[in-house]
Computed example of a mutant assay.
Amino acid sequence: MKNTFFTLFILSASLTLYSQQHSATKADFSRPKKLKDYQLVWHDEFNKKGKPDVKYWAYETGFKRNNELQWYQAKNASCKNGILTITALKEKVKNPNYDVNSKDWRENRAFGDYTSASINTRGLKSWKYGRFEVRARIDSAKGSWPAIWTLGNKERWPANGEIDIMEFYIKNNRQSILANAAHLGINSEAKWNSKVLPITYFLEKDPKWLEKFHIWRMDWDEEAIKIYLDDELINDISITNTNNPDGFNPFHQEHYILLNLAIGGENGGDPSLSKFPMTYEVDYVRVYQKNN
């Protein structure tokens, strides 16, 4: 009897572990959880087939920032089986804005050698304060630069404020997870508060970390921005003294959400030897705010 009980116990534990590991690699179709003292004010579970919902998401097009290599286009973002997938491809695309005499890198490239997608809720959905949760899985190939971030509605960057709930790129010659915020400092330059953790920090705890979805979370109120990864606090940023030189605090205004997969550029690394397509998968985006 003892041996039978022990065998059943081991079998049950093994099945539970398998279930947990298997679910970590799949879409989560469960209802958004209820949180004490919070209400769910908006979410997108991406439980549809085709393009992201146009009521919530708009697209960036073309070359945009950081000398990145990708040409952003809408067709590289699609939903299927409960997952938004942003796909980066190694393909040549003609730059319709090409000007051989331009000094702007966005215009003096005749072609882009890579394509990807960047979607955002600008002008459609924005929030001031709250808990933001995003379940996502990233691609660690060299050159991959996925992000979950927000920008303020008012002022131009960096005066509008930027919050990077997640970035993944090469920092200090190591592939790293970053959690940052920036506002306008002196001399019209961005003033950053950054936390950098090498990807090896997570792989040492779980060698299969990159195969799984993870939950990035931001808790944001009038005093601080706290960024978590799987409930581990990554960065705690006080915003009581993050005023721009003109006195405007960009973290006391509404922000909108961006999801994108950049390639190369100033931080992504050289993708020329990497395997394509690269994918960045997002299971859901949820925004909670405190009850009045």
Rank of each mutant, 00 (worst) to 15 (best):
K125D: 09
K90I: 01
S102M: 01
V134S: 06
K34V: 13
N180A: 12
S188Y: 07
N260E: 05
N260V: 04
Y59W: 08
K33V: 14
Y280E: 00
V285E: 11
R137K: 11
I257L: 04
A58S: 13
C79I: 04
V287H: 09
F5K: 10
N249P: 06
F248R: 03
K34M: 15
H252V: 11
W42Q: 08
I186F: 10
S78T: 10
L203Q: 11
K125L: 10
K208A: 06
I237A: 13
P146F: 04
L197M: 14
N241D: 13
N173L: 07
Q175S: 13
E254Q: 11
D44N: 01
I237V: 09
E204V: 04
I215L: 15
V282E: 08
L15N: 06
I170Y: 15
I177W: 12
Q39V: 12
G82M: 05
T242E: 10
S23C: 13
E91Q: 10
T16D: 08
S272V: 14
N292S: 12
A13R: 13
A117Q: 00
F46K: 02
G50I: 11
K290E: 12
H252Q: 13
F6C: 02
K171A: 12
D44A: 00
Y38E: 01
N180I: 10
Y114I: 07
G123C: 04
Y59Q: 07
T150C: 14
L210C: 03
I215V: 15
Q21V: 09
